[in-house]
Design a protein around this nucleic acid. Structure first.
Lengths: 230, 230
DNA sequence: ACCTGAACACCGTTCAAGT
DNA sequence: ACCTGAACACCGTTCAAGT
């Protein structure tokens, strides 16, 4: 559950007194505020400290450098997203792939949209940091939850589960990310909310080998599994 | 064809003598080299100037600030990608959607993979810059080329062409981007090269209304078009 | 026309001194 | 234990002086 911090990005000390917990919390909140009001480019250690009502020195007592601070903020957000997908994984277990695809996309989009402004700001933060280990950890949680979910599907089996999971998630992550980085219109958002699940369903139907004959629809899924080689 | 520079990101002057053209070219090349060997974080105006064999002052004669320099390098690369998709658009006009999907994905991946290291480095650059106008311009070219291509498909018509184009491209862009930002294994690359087109084909088949009865396959496409509203 | 590089303002980070 | 803020090193940017 806990993701290891890459060396050097650890918080410098853990708060031991009530006073310092308040301080750390204030620093977190100030970081997000400065990020949203001033932008990443103008996010300065001095500015964050000022906004948090502490001195720069205090900040450096908890975070060895600016990167570590941003890293910690990013980590919080990604953790919430991973949790959302894991929860969805529990809820849709054993359902048909259509339901799974819809549920998964909805959970992911909702988690991001809940704090859309923060999400958007953090994409920039993530790019400027060495986040490979953090993203690896979060991706693994989400990947595992998704693979387990797909494996439990009532009406389908997958020959290459890891690759299917990876492709599916890449499209989901990437699409939503794309939307966030450029400001999408509400119309685009609505459109995507329908078309992204549609794409996922179509893909899963294409790559699945049927487990039992589906009850209602007369449409036969393709029999051959797609081969990844070359 | 030419994309307007956002205010303030214009090159400061255009080279008028052969000497300065050489200088600018050296600066471009130096930027990419420093980016690849030192990373974005250690990319310093002094370092780039040194590597290019000119003084900082000279650099500032051509680029008003560091951002403008990075912007220009990014612009070059994106232009090459847009050109690749436009070319593919010409080549696959009037083909069946399966062929179009395959060709489009291949063209895009190839364009990125051609200079994979530069691609990777530039994703970081793009995130740290105000690139909305640049990306809007490039996206428009790619979007237009793709929409025209889809409209020409021999075996399908699309009720909501703009939304379909957008969703398709988002998945493509996003997926490839995802791969680039984290180092993907060759196996993953090969897998994706097969599965990403498969996903695109499945999606297009799902959202298309058939133009003429397909000749070979007995699989009927779904008749109802997916509705984007809520 | 084009180039140089010392000089300036600003930001990340430290550390001796405080409570 | 926790906090302060002047001090230092480094980076982006400028501009008077050169060819």
């Amino acid at each position: 559950m806990t993701i290891a911090h890459p060396e050097g990005l650890k918080p410098r000390k853990t708060p031991r007194q009530a006073r310092s917990e308040v301080t750390v919390e204030a620093i977190f909140e100030a970081t997000i505020q400065v990020l949203l009001t001033e932008g990443l480019r103008r996010l300065t250690t001095t500015r964050v400290a000022e906004r948090a009502g502490v001195s720069v020195g205090t900040m450096y007592q908890y975070f060895p450098h600016k990167q570590a601070l941003l890293y910690a903020v990013l980590r919080r957000h990604l953790d919430a997203v991973a949790k959302a997908v894991e929860t969805a994984g529990g809820r849709y277990r054993g359902q048909p792939i259509a339901t799974i695809a819809n549920g998964l996309v909805a959970a992911f989009i909702d988690a991001k949209a809940a704090r859309a402004d923060v999400s958007r700001a953090l994409y920039l933060v993530a790019a400027g940091l060495d986040t490979s280990e953090l993203l690896d950890g979060m991706s693994r949680r989400i990947h595992d939850a998704t693979a387990t979910l797909l494996e439990s599907a009532a009406d389908a089996e997958f020959d290459e589960l890891p690759l299917v999971t990876f492709t599916l998630l890449s499209a989901m992550f990437g699409t939503v990310r794309m939307i966030f980085e450029r400001g999408a219109t509400p119309a685009t958002w609505r459109g995507l909310r329908a078309h992204l699940p549609a794409m996922c369903r179509a893909y899963l139907r294409e790559t699945a080998t049927e487990k039992r004959p589906a009850p209602t629809p007369p449409v036969p899924p393709s029999r051959k599994t797609t081969r990844p080689g070359k």
